[in-house]
Design a binder for these strands. Structure first.
Length: 261
DNA sequence: ATGGTGGATCCTCCA
């Protein structure tokens, strides 16, 4: 059995101590980070190595984006793809010794206006999702897990108020449709919702709320999916809401799942 | 309806 976690850290250099705290308290075998906001060579690895995370695969750039995979289990670099040709570090993959491939994604947020005619970034988000669909369709993944900040809350119970968010980027029908097409193309199973089918689930709360905990205007933007051949091995999903209350937190919290593989 | 916060870097962009 191994545990995998995904967390949009919003600067791994600023929050090195928070990463170390998660690794100490939860000890996932694999931690996938997004928004590292750092060139790979400047990611602080010593504290993570000291905790047993001796394996590391990442892509980065200065100031923006960036994805990394820290692992206690041996992994090898399984490449990346520049989805939508943006030149951003938003995807990296790793392979475990048992043959499982882990994809770590950071889907573009998409700006504020949900219209590709008025907002270039929204179109780029849709194009990114369309290319995910096409890649999964052309080469159907097997024995694969895909995690990350997908920047879409697909279900009505993945947001604090479905009706109020229908025109808010991250929950518009067109985004949900594009995400569903990518999910369907790979036959991906939403492991978090397989394990927790009922009830409101959030993994992100805005920095802009006066009191994020009391207002509780959250969204489930961070996901763990698996291909059908291994999806039933996934269990014990959880979202670590208290992490949002840590000192100088990320606006996202870790999402975890176990796999009996 | 609006503005609210946070991070990195450049003198503003992105979320």
């Amino acid at each position: 059995m191994f545990t995998i976690a995904t967390w949009n850290i919003n600067s791994v250099r600023l929050r090195e101590a928070l990463v170390a705290r998660l690794l100490t308290e939860e000890a996932p075998d694999i931690l996938c980070l997004q928004e590292t906001k750092s060139p790979v060579e400047h990611i602080p690895l010593e504290a993570f190595r000291a905790l047993g995370y001796n394996y590391f695969v990442a892509r980065g750039q200065k100031g923006y984006n960036g994805v990394a995979i820290l692992s206690k289990l041996p992994i090898e670099d399984a490449g990346d793809r520049d989805y939508a040709g943006l030149g951003h570090a938003r995807h990296v993959a790793a392979r475990l010794e048992n043959g499982v491939t882990v994809h770590n994604f950071y889907v573009p947020a998409g700006g504020d206006i949900p219209d590709r005619e008025q907002n270039l970034k929204f179109g780029q988000k849709l194009d990114f999702l369309t290319e995910m669909r096409d890649v999964f369709h052309a080469d159907r993944p097997a024995r694969a897990i895909m995690v990350g900040d997908l920047n879409i809350a697909p279900r009505e119970d993945d947001v604090w108020n479905h009706k109020a968010l229908l025109k808010i980027v991250s929950h518009t029908p067109v985004e949900v449709e594009h995400l569903a097409a990518a999910q369907d193309a790979g036959k991906w199973v939403d492991v978090t919702r397989k394990d927790i089918p009922q009830g409101m689930l959030y993994s992100w709360w805005s920095y802009r709320a006066r009191d994020w905990d009391a207002a509780d205007k959250g969204r489930r933007l961070d996901h763990i999916w698996a291909t059908p051949d291994i999806a039933n091995a996934g269990h014990g999903s959880r979202i670590l809401r208290p992490v949002r209350g840590w000192q100088q937190p990320s606006d996202h919290v870790p999402v975890l799942a176990n796999f009996d593989l």
